[in-house]
Structures are given as structure tokens and as C-alpha cells.
Design a protein around this nucleic acid. Structure first.
Length: 797
RNA sequence: UGGCCCGUCGUCUAAUGGCAGGACACCGGUCUUUGGAACCGGCGGUGGUGGUUCGAAUCCACCCGGGCCAACCA
């Protein structure tokens, strides 16, 4: 597998969509949405969501059984005090720049205010919402805590008429902010805090950037979001993990209002990237406090920042596909983004020469005033693009200061006194003399050249290890180069700040060296003719492009998009670590690895001790003891059965049906039933203890295999029925006859000669593979002992 | 602490009861007029303990660790 990106993504969300499609849900529609709040700029975490949502719409358009796919852009603008048109515009620009198109499906939650108002009235009429007139503080205090239930509002019992009237007057502007709110009437004792009568509407006498002063009541997220989704016919509403608890409210709302569609919410892990932050609020603060130059500062993780830095939309999309989509909290290594950026630019960036820190080189045997025009290709041999430019070569040149060493570290392949080096596309030169100023600083190198090496190849075929970049002093263009590094000094600034307690501040972990400006850099003259948005590789240095903001007019200001991989810098770091006083080029500039992670974990707590059994209510314990002695069950099993009276009853009735089957019945009830049960109560199952007993007995007596038993149980749990009949209908009778099984076993073995060889040479784990094949062939009907015996007979000789 | 969710190489992510695989990173090598790219090879993982099963990363129980929830934010 050389191209992982080519492999179609199959994350859990796409699996759900495929499943829904296969089951004919939503009439073959796959409709997603990206729902930003216009209260800040989008960042790379949003890019993950954009690529997911728009990517799904694009991808599934061609899938089987699909009638329609699309992805909406919906502004979730229900909070007038933080939102602004300027953000709406910036967000649209960012989404488009990333390469996505919402077509005509641009929506605003604020466009639904009237409809939402009607849904609120509907809830009131159904007795499912009420106007609460407690103060904000009272509401908060009476919500209870995670361990204690809340206290119902004294206004919870208001009549439908009173609620309707009050709500109408809220809208009419008769009340001040905070005087009343509209609340859903759900459950003040719910273990899910969000279900404790969530607020639906609040009064805000604030002008909304779109609806002006048309409204003075505004819906809250929990109310507006599901309704917006439903109104737009969203089928799969994808959001991040922190909204997990909100799903219960979401479902409650779409089930209790007469919305046209029934959308479903699925949550995935938001993106966390090392050495940066993703909170819009915190990013806004960096902007406001001047820590960065704006939302589009190239150090920012914002789309605008990445764009200004020079990163391409393709690189961001690739990155998003590389990191995948899952449900576990994660933190992605910067290296992954860097890889995506380099991989993209390597394929398209023309190569040019630029000297960041110039050191003068005089070619003493080069005639004064003579200029040689060298043709240099824009791309290396392995990039399939054409193009070249002219590189002027003259007596006075500049090279980068760290491409010369008076006292070279081991392995140094660049210029040294008395040594040779190749000037890229130019000549091989030899350093004859080092000129220093009064302070001992090197000011000039005096070199001679090999006239026969024009273009860089030695006429006599001698090996010149080093090749360095250079510019001609008389022709080079002065420029400013901005080198960016990570914004923070620690991988997880939020955690680091939190680790400092109350007054922890992420700004304490800002990297003071996140921007280094090279004022006196010199770039080859050819760049003057290029389009201003050209992304270059400055050979041996990194990828750069002209800063679109600072490069007004002729000013040449370059941003470093990304460094090149630099194995020499790594050697330098290692040498330094080994106590050798040497530094590779740039070595200290980039901190690799997870330094700064502070507090080394001392004294890991030990996991896995058996641990005291959970403290059960005495009554449960007593019933467990009873079960334990009555049926000779293991204590743990007895307790599991006793924990739920309904489960215990189920078990007891089943045992009545089959008195000898207590143990297997307990096993099946404990281990096999729960996953099939889902969230249905036992009583809601389409079968009872009698059927289970019958089924388990069929397994125990060998009529069907345990695998067959599980298959039958699946059917039983789904459709109900009579076990014997199911076994009959599905043809699940166990195959224990060796004469029947043997040919199947032989077939399986013959079909996999390579596996057999591997097995013979010791890979015994393959027995599971062969068993699996036999089971597959027999649809789980093979008697495992017999099959295994046969297999072992064949394979082990 | 109540509820919900999540634990797979250093990192991200597959395997949906049947061979623990890929990517990034790292290490070594080949090649090289970029210490780039490419290519080849290597290192390295199912949090723990029990149980169910012929077979468990996957199902069950407990433990450990992590996340989210007590805004009139989203």
C-alpha cells in the first residue's frame, strides 16, 4: 500500500452512513452541514469538520443507493452579542479556499427564528415548555449538582395559557433581560444535567447583525441546533465529543416537535494539535493582546493564518484525511501536519536559491566584471515538472554563514578552509583564505574555482560531497525573510496552564522565538519575474512564499511555510547531546519531541489489582447469596443477576423451564444477552426466559453449536419466535460428523498453502485462522472440537 | 462524587468474535549536484485482573487511567 490517501476512508461515521444507506434510511439522502458560529475565525480544528462534512457529501454522491447528497453551510447565529458579519465573510472565504462549495445551501439559524418561535409555542401547548421567572442565579442554584437532583421551579406548573401569553409578551419586548426565560419541561432530577429543564429562549435587547431589532428573544443552542438540522433535512448531524451530553436534549426536541425530518447527531473527537491551541476564545485573546499580529498571523492555527503562511488547501485536506475520525480524545503530532505540507509542496514548488545569513565569497581567479549565465532547472529529476531560469555567476558571491566552518564537526560536508564544495548549478570552489575583522568575525572567504566544473560536475569525476546554495552579490535581490516556529513552547499549552493552578496562563508558554526575521537575506534575481503567489523551495532551506500582506509593491518579504527535513540538524543535536560542542545548522531553532511536558510521572499507580467488589445494597447482597447457594453460581455471577430484580426473575423463570441449566443460563444471560438487548428493558424483548432456556438447552445438548446458538439468539432478540423453529429455518444443526467435516477441512487447508507453510514453520496462531475458515464454510455449524481435531490431524501430521 | 463517553506501537488510526495492519515519527541502508525527494529494511502496541467462547483488541464483570456535563455560550 503506497498511497494510503487513495484508500477510501471508512471511519465510524462513514460506516454509519453506509449502514443507513443499506437499510434504506432517509430515502437515500446524505445531508450534512457545517455549522460555525460567526464569532471568530475558523481554525484547523474546524478544517477537520469541514473536510469531514463536505467530504462526505462529495464522496457519497456516487455511492450505491444514494439519491441526494449535499453539505450545508449554516451560521449558528443565535447569540447576537458575540456575532458579526465580518466573521460570516471570513468563514465563507475560508471554506471556499479549502476547496468546498455549499452551492445554494447557505443558511442562517437567524432565518429560522419565526419557525422556531412556532415550535416553542407548540411545546408550550403540549405542556412541554414553560416560562420561568426565576433569576439567573436562582435557576443556577436550583439546577442541583451532578450528585443531587435539581429543585423544580415554582413556575413549572404555569398553565398553557399563562405560558403562551408570557412568551408572547417576551417576544413583544415587554420585559427586561433576565426577567423571564422559556424552559423545556423535562426532568429536574435527570442524571444528565442538560436535561434538567434546559433553557430554550432568553431575552436580549441587543441588535442582531442580521435580524436587527426584529427580535428581543433569542433561542439557545440546545433548542436552535436540532431544529435547524430538522428544518434543513440534515440526515447526519456531526459535531464534536463535548456535545455528547446534548444529544439527549437534541433527540427530545426533534421527537417532541412537529419537525419535517428526524436528524441524528453523531459525535467525533475534535482535533488537538501539539504546540498550539484551538479555542476561539483564547485565540481571540492572543489577537487582542497583541501576542500575534492578527487572526491571520502565520503562526496562528487559523485557516487564515495557515493560508497566509503559504500552506495550501490540498495540504490541509491531506492532513485531515491522515488523522482520521474517531471517538477517542487525541492529540496529533505537529510532524503530521509538517509532513502533509512538505509532501504537497515538494511536488509543486520551483527550486530557487536564497541566502538567509550572507557570508561574502570572492572567487579570486574569476575575472573582474565577468558574469556567467548558468541555466538551472526549477525542479529536481524526480519532480515531473518542466522549467528553468538563468542564474548569474560572478566574482563576488554570498553563501550562508553556516555552510562554512573553520572548525568543522565530524561529518561536516560543506566548505572548510582548504576544502572543496560545489556551488549548486555553478562551479566547484576551494577555500584558500579566511578573512576576519578585528573582532575575529569572519567577513569574507577567498576561494578559487575549477573552470572545468561549470554546472557542478567535476571533469575528472572526483567526488565532491558537499553542495551549497549561493547568490551572486551583484545580482541578488535583498529581501526580508520571516521564519516561523511553533507558537508555544509546550505540547499542550492548556494543560500546562491548568497545571499552574488558578493563575495559570497559556501566555506564559508562548514561544518567544516563534518569529525570527532575517532582514538581510539575498534571493536570486529570477524570482522578480514570478507570480507573487509562487511557493518556492529555497534549496536546502525550506519552503517559502511572499507574504501577501507585507509584500505590497516591490517589497520582497518571504514567509517560511515549512522547513525541509533536516537530518544534519539532527546529527548536530545528537552531537550536542553527546557532549561535543558542535551545533548543526539551525540545530537549536527547532525543538523536536515532547520537551517541556513537565512533571515526569513518578510512582505510577498500579492498575489491575482485583479491587474490592463494589459495595452493593444489603438487599441485593442477600439475594445474591441466595442465588449463589441455590444454584451453585459464582459469586460475581450471582451478584450480576441479583443487581437487577428483572434480570433475576428472568433467570429464575428460565431455570424453572430447565432446572439443570442454571450455570449455562446464567452465562448466556450475563454474557450474551446484554449486547443484543440494546437499551430495551428485558420485558420489551420479543422473547422470554422460556425461549432462552429452550435455546440454551439446544446448545448444551449439542443440537447446535454455541456459534449457532448465538446466531439463533440474534434472530430471537430481533424478531422473536420459537427457538426450535428458528434453528430449523436457519438450518443451524451442528455438524459433528467427521466424515462430513473432513472434506471441508481439507478444502480449507488446500486453499491456503501459504498459511499452511507458515503454520508448519511455527506460526501456530494460524490455527485460529483455519478454524475461522472452517466456521465460515459451515456458517458456524461445525462442531468446534471435531473441527479442531481434524485440523490438528491434518496440520500437525 | 451521579450520569454519559473513551483507552490498540512514541503519535494518529484500522481490524466490528478468526493472521493485530497502515500512516507519521524514530533507527539503519541504497541512491543523490538539495544533509531534500524517492526506494529498501528495522524498531515498536491491544491499561490491568478475572470470566464467556474452539477462538477475545472486540462480548461480560470489576479495577485503573482519561474526557465531558452543574453559561440566560456554542
Amino acid at each position: 500500500m503506497t498511497d494510503s490517501a487513495a484508500r477510501l476512508a471508512n471511519d465510524f461515521i462513514r460506516q454509519i452512513i453506509r449502514r443507513d444507506l443499506a437499510q434504506g434510511k432517509n430515502e437515500g439522502r446524505v445531508i450534512t452541514r457545517f455549522p460555525p458560529e460567526p464569532n471568530g475565525f475558523l481554525h484547523i480544528g474546524h478544517a477537520k469538520s469541514i473536510v469531514l462534512n463536505f467530504g462526505i457529501a462529495r464522496e457519497f454522491a456516487a455511492a450505491d443507493g444514494v439519491r441526494e447528497t449535499r453539505c450545508h453551510l449554516r451560521f449558528d447565529d443565535t447569540n447576537p452579542s458575540t456575532e458579526d458579519l465580518r466573521y460570516v465573510e471570513a468563514i465563507q472565504e475560508d471554506v471556499q479556499w479549502l476547496g468546498y462549495d455549499w452551492g445554494e445551501h447557505l443558511y442562517f439559524a437567524s432565518d429560522y427564528f419565526e419557525e422556531m418561535y412556532s415550535f416553542a409555542q407548540e411545546l408550550i401547548r403540549k405542556g412541554l415548555a414553560y416560562v420561568d421567572s426565576q433569576s439567573e442565579k436562582e435557576i443556577r442554584e436550583r439546577r442541583g449538582t451532578v450528585t443531587e437532583p435539581g429543585i423544580p421551579s415554582p413556575h413549572r406548573g404555569r398553565s398553557v395559557e399563562a405560558n403562551l401569553d408570557l412568551f408572547r409578551r417576551m417576544r413583544a419586548g415587554e420585559f427586561a433581560e433576565g426577567e423571564h426565560v422559556l424552559r423545556a419541561k423535562i426532568d429536574m432530577a435527570s442524571p444528565n444535567m442538560l436535561m434538567r429543564d434546559p433553557l430554550l429562549y432568553r431575552i436580549r435587547h441587543v441588535e442582531h447583525y442580521r435580524t436587527g431589532d426584529e427580535w428581543c428573544i433569542y433561542p439557545l443552542y440546545d433548542f436552535a441546533h436540532p431544529l435547524g438540522d430538522a428544518l434543513e433535512g440534515i440526515t447526519h448531524s456531526l459535531c464534536t465529543l463535548e456535545f455528547e451530553n446534548n444529544r439527549e436534549v437534541y433527540d427530545w426536541l426533534v421527537e417532541n416537535t412537529s419537525v419535517p425530518y428526524r436528524p441524528h447527531q453523531y459525535e467525533f473527537a475534535r482535533l488537538n494539535l501539539d504546540f498550539t491551541i484551538m479555542s476561539k476564545r483564547k485565540l481571540l485573546r492572543l489577537v487582542k493582546e497583541g501576542d500575534v499580529e492578527g487572526w491571520d498571523d502565520p503562526r496562528m492555527p487559523t485557516i487564515a493564518g495557515l493560508r497566509r503562511r503559504g500552506i495550501t488547501p490540498q495540504a490541509i485536506r491531506t492532513f485531515c484525511e491522515m488523522i482520521g475520525v474517531a471517538r477517542s480524545d487525541s492529540r496529533v503530532d505537529m510532524g503530521k501536519l509538517e509532513y502533509a505540507v512538505r509532501d504537497d509542496l515538494n511536488q509543486k514548488a520551483p527550486r530557487v536559491l536564497c541566502v538567509l545569513d550572507p557570508l561574502k565569497v570572492v572567487i579570486t581567479d574569476w575575472p573582474q566584471g565577468k558574469t556567467d549565465e548558468l541555466e538551472a532547472p526549477h525542479y529536481p529529476h524526480d519532480v515531473p515538472l518542466e522549467g528553468s531560469r538563468i542564474l548569474p555567476f560572478s566574482r563576488e558571491l554570498y553563501i550562508d554563514r553556516d555552510d562554512f566552518a573553520e572548525d568543522p564537526p565530524k561529518g561536516f560536508r560543506r566548505l572548510v578552509l582548504g576544502g572543496e564544495v560545489r556551488l549548486r548549478y555553478g562551479y566547484i570552489i576551494r577555500c584558500q583564505e579566511v578573512v576576519k575583522d578585528a573582532q575575529g568575525r569572519i567577513t569574507e572567504l577567498r576561494c578559487t574555482h575549477d573552470p572545468g566544473s561549470r554546472g557542478g560536475s567535476a571533469p575528472d569525476g572526483r567526488k565532491v560531497k558537499g553542495t551549497i546554495h549561493w547568490v551572486s552579490a551583484a545580482h541578488a535581490l535583498p529581501c526580508r525573510v520571516r521564519l516561523y516556529d511553533r507558537l508555544f513552547t509546550v505540547p499542550d499549552p492548556d494543560a500546562a496552564a491548568a497545571g499552574r493552578g488558578e493563575d495559570g496562563d497559556i501566555r506564559d508558554f508562548l514561544n518567544p522565538e516563534s518569529l525570527e526575521v532575517k532582514e538581510g537575506a539575498l534571493v536570486e534575481p529570477s524570482v522578480a519575474d514570478d507570480p507573487p503567489d509562487t511557493r518556492y523551495q529555497f534549496e536546502r532551506v525550506g519552503y517559502f512564499w511572499r507574504d501577501p500582506v507585507e509584500s505590497e509593491g516591490d517589497a520582497l518579504v518571504f514567509n517560511r511555510i515549512e522547513t525541509l527535513r533536516d537530518t544534519w540538524a539532527k546529527v548536530g543535536t545528537k552531537l550536542a547531546a553527546g557532549g561535543v560542542e558542535r551545533e548543526g545548522r539551525d540545530a537549536p531553532a527547532r525543538r523536536k519531541g515532547r520537551d517541556g511536558s513537565e512533571d515526569g510521572a513518578a510512582g505510577e499507580p498500579h492498575a489491575g489489582e482485583p479491587g474490592a467488589p463494589p459495595e452493593l445494597p444489603p438487599e441485593v447482597k442477600a439475594r445474591a447469596t441466595e442465588l449463589e447457594s441455590q444454584f451453585q453460581l459464582e459469586r460475581v455471577d450471582a451478584e450480576i443477576l441479583a443487581r437487577d430484580a428483572e434480570v433475576e426473575r428472568f433467570f429464575r423463570v428460565a431455570v424453572e423451564e430447565w432446572p439443570d441449566g442454571a450455570l449455562p443460563l446464567a452465562n448466556w444471560i450475563i454474557n450474551e444477552l446484554p449486547p443484543l438487548q440494546g437499551d430495551r428493558p428485558l420485558e420489551a424483548l420479543p422473547f422470554g426466559p422460556g425461549e432462552l432456556a429452550e435455546l440454551v438447552e439446544l446448545v448444551e445438548e449439542g443440537t447446535i453449536s454455541s456459534s449457532g446458538g448465538r446466531q439463533a439468539l440474534e434472530v430471537l432478540a430481533r424478531d422473536g419466535g420459537e427457538p426450535g423453529a428458528i434453528v430449523e429455518r436457519l438450518d443451524l444443526a451442528q455438524i459433528s460428523d467427521p466424515t462430513v467435516l473432513r472434506p471441508i477441512v481439507l478444502d480449507v487447508v488446500e486453499a491456503h498453502p501459504d498459511k499452511v507453510k507458515a503454520y508448519m514453520t511455527g506460526k501456530k496462531g494460524l490455527m485460529g485462522f483455519f478454524m475461522g475458515q472452517v466456521m465460515r464454510e459451515t456458517r458456524g455449524k461445525a462442531n468446534p472440537e471435531v473441527a479442531k481435531g481434524l485440523l490438528s490431524e491434518v496440520l500437525d501430521g
